[in-house]
């Protein structure tokens, strides 16, 4: 039982990180119907920027809470600007092009981000200097650190904030209108370009927060770290119903728990035929299964053939 609880905690925390990244995918997809392949790499940039700031400040003896705020702030700033410029340069000119075009550009941008990061930060794994000493909470023999709890709360909190924002604010209404039909929204006085740019900025900022969390949690940063994370997060978004903010978080948490439970128990369940070596496959199997059985995802509306 103790082990089961621990696996559940492991899964929920991993899932919260997926959820944070998935929010970025789902927002852009909701508005543009575009898989922003580069989103995982924006998260990576956020993580590495945060790491650099922590490295610089922690050595200078700045108190930890201030370091965190500054690292998060810098990461959000850099990622927002990055998201804004990627949208402007790589996606906006192709808004009316065939569907394949922006997808291929997105892949190109993803590669560009990775290798530019490799040039700036090198290809070594970068370690996070000692910063926090999260306290451990004992839950029926299982360990939960305050940091893990914070990540989980943060994922749920950002989701709630976003849901409220989209429902209640003026910009949120414009976003919903653009999602329904950009042309009509434009006619109704919505500045579609601004709405889309805004969506990219918010999605990238959340990605930056996710990056900061990854760095704090694992204590490690690497130019290639965004790739697998992005893929898993995208799977999570699809699982929950892409375009749906609540679905992204639900999908993220579910995927995290599935992965954790699968690597923990599948070896015993299958008598050693399968093992933790298949962990990365589970995500893709879930993805294929969901797409085949219910392409709109768990919480998605059945308007799956929107384009």
């Amino acid at each position: 039982m103790e082990i089961f609880t621990q696996q559940l905690i492991n899964g929920l925390v991993l899932g919260s990180i997926y959820a944070l990244v998935a929010l970025g995918y789902t927002m852009v997809y909701g508005i543009l119907g575009l898989i922003n392949f580069a989103h995982g790499d924006i998260t990576m940039v956020g993580a590495l920027v945060a790491l650099t700031v922590v490295q610089a400040l922690a050595a200078a003896g700045v108190p930890a809470p201030l370091v965190l705020v500054l690292a998060g702030g810098c990461a959000i700033l850099v990622c927002s600007l990055l998201g804004l410029s990627i949208e402007r340069v790589a996606y906006r000119p192709l808004r009316r092009a065939p569907r394949l075009a922006p997808l291929i550009t997105a892949i190109g941008i993803s590669i560009l981000l990775q290798y530019t990061a490799a040039l700036i930060w090198g290809k070594q794994y970068i370690a996070l200097p000692k910063l926090l000493e999260p306290a451990a909470i004992d839950i029926a023999g299982a360990q939960l650190t305050t940091l893990q709890l914070a990540i989980f709360v943060l994922a749920c909190g950002i989701m709630a904030l976003l849901l409220w924002f989209i429902k209640a604010s003026r910009m949120g209404r414009a976003m919903r209108a653009t999602e329904q039909n950009p042309d009509v929204a434009g006619l109704m006085g919505v500045n579609v370009d601004t709405v889309i740019a805004f969506t990219f900025v918010v999605g990238s900022a959340i990605g930056a927060v996710a990056g900061l969390m990854v760095v704090l949690y694992y204590g490690i940063g690497h130019y290639f770290m965004g790739f697998m994370l992005g893929l898993k997060a995208f799977t999570a978004a699809v699982l929950g119903g892409i375009g749906n903010v609540g679905g992204a978080v639900l999908g993220g948490l579910l995927l995290g728990v599935i992965e954790s439970m699968a690597s923990g128990y599948i070896g015993d369940l299958t008598g050693g035929v399968l093992g933790s070596n298949y962990r990365d496959i589970f995500a893709f199997l879930v993805l294929v299964l969901v797409l085949v059985v219910k392409p709109s995802g768990l919480l998605g509306q059945s308007g799956g053939d929107r384009a």
């Binding site: 082990i3 492991n10 694992y218 690597s263 923990g264 962990r279």
Partner: peptide
């Protein structure tokens, strides 16, 4: 990979 919690818990 960077997350080993699942296998370590096992």
């Amino acid at each position: 990979d960077t997350d080993f919690k699942a296998i370590l818990t096992k």
